[in-house]
Design a protein around this nucleic acid. Structure first.
Lengths: 204, 204
DNA sequence: TGCAAAAATGAGTGGCGGTTCATTTAGCAC
DNA sequence: GTGCTAAATGAACCGCCACTCATTTTTGCA
């Protein structure tokens, strides 16, 4: 039973099922936490048998990795695309920040995985940090340096530290939003953060 | 064997052993992560038998809670004490920030537990957030509001958001410091953060 | 329609580790 | 020394769950 559309697609059913499992995993991890989530839960949420999960992923841990890798790749690509839209460094940072919070704000489950589940062990943190996080920080940093060269930002500031400050502030907005019972829009917070941030780093 | 100093102290040997287990747990959690740490590891690191741990703590989870509770209580008390040393709101925030990074910088293992292990599940996060974190944020926030009333800080800013920004920036400094292979002093970062932050929030 | 290969299934298993508790040891008063 | 209590011990238990694999189902082609 079930609509098994298989002809006409060059990528086989594989992609669909892999995708279904990843989506299910995001949902399950977000609700129960990575360590409390059972592979069986993910399987049933995805509508497949337990064993099927292992046809697409080597282990439970690899599922978490895949979620991170895919999302981070998308986020960085989207960020890069935004940067091409403008040349003003201030505006570039504004777009990065907005995009950052928009993406998380649009998918609460994914946001929970990113803000909470991925932070839960030094082992993960180190791997993830090495992978995508560092690149993301570098994106912010080089944009800032560009602004320094253009004379827009205070030249004496350490760009690495500045990047961490902006990232940290946005990160805290996201984490707070997840934990908050009161529902509000996340993306608009970007403006408030940037107001203070740009005011703090701009050359007078 | 062992020096069993028991007379003269009103609190019995209990406190010593509880303390030993807590310290051992911080070390073990920091090195292996909360979920990978075995109670047996903590016990042997503390120099006691497995079962002894359960004479002082109801469960493995309660150990983590106790670490958080005790440290947070100390941190907030220390923060309050600092606030009494000065009346200038700018200086107050500077001292809070410095203290924040000093405390984490002085005890890397505790810092790992705070920055990484405690963030690993929504369940923990919600409990901890409700408990001490919220109070800490409030400390920052009310100091900022005091500065607004004094005309030192921009009056149109939302104090809650401002508090999160400062906290987020400091938090990111701490997390980065833990994950960094290069060893540097954490506390001095406070000045760089505050430079930008105060510049961003001060009334001109 | 038949048939081989690929995909999917889900019951079973093996190991792990948090917790318990019967037993041992230490502390102390007389 | 003797007896009593509190503290400490650590072997064993037991529930859990990631992962395996023998079997079944689906697919795609002739």
């Amino acid at each position: 039973m079930r609509s098994a559309r298989s002809l006409s697609s060059d990528r086989p059913v594989v992609a669909d099922k892999r995708e279904a499992i990843l989506r299910a995993a995001i949902r399950v991890f977000a609700h129960n936490g990575y360590f409390s989530s059972k592979v069986a839960d993910i399987a049933s949420a995805a509508g497949v048998a337990d064993g099927t999960v292992y046809l697409y992923f080597k282990s439970k841990e690899e599922i978490l990795h895949s979620i991170f890798d895919r999302s981070m790749e998308e986020a960085i690509a989207a960020g890069r695309a935004q940067l091409e839209q403008t040349t003003d460094p201030r505006e570039k940072l504004r777009r990065i920040a907005l995009l950052h919070l928009e993406r998380l704000g649009d998918d609460r489950d994914l946001a929970v995985v990113f803000q909470v589940e991925l932070r839960g062990s030094t082992k993960f943190m180190e791997e993830f940090s090495a992978a995508g996080f560092a690149e993301y920080l570098k994106l912010i940093r080089s944009t800032f340096e560009e602004g320094q060269r253009a004379g827009v930002f205070r030249p004496e500031l350490n760009a690495k530290v500045v990047a961490k400050i902006l990232f940290g502030a946005l990160d805290e907005m996201a984490t707070n939003w997840i934990l908050s019972k009161r529902r509000y829009k996340l993306a608009p917070m970007a403006d408030q953060v940037l107001d203070i941030f740009l005011n703090g780093v701009s050359a007078k």
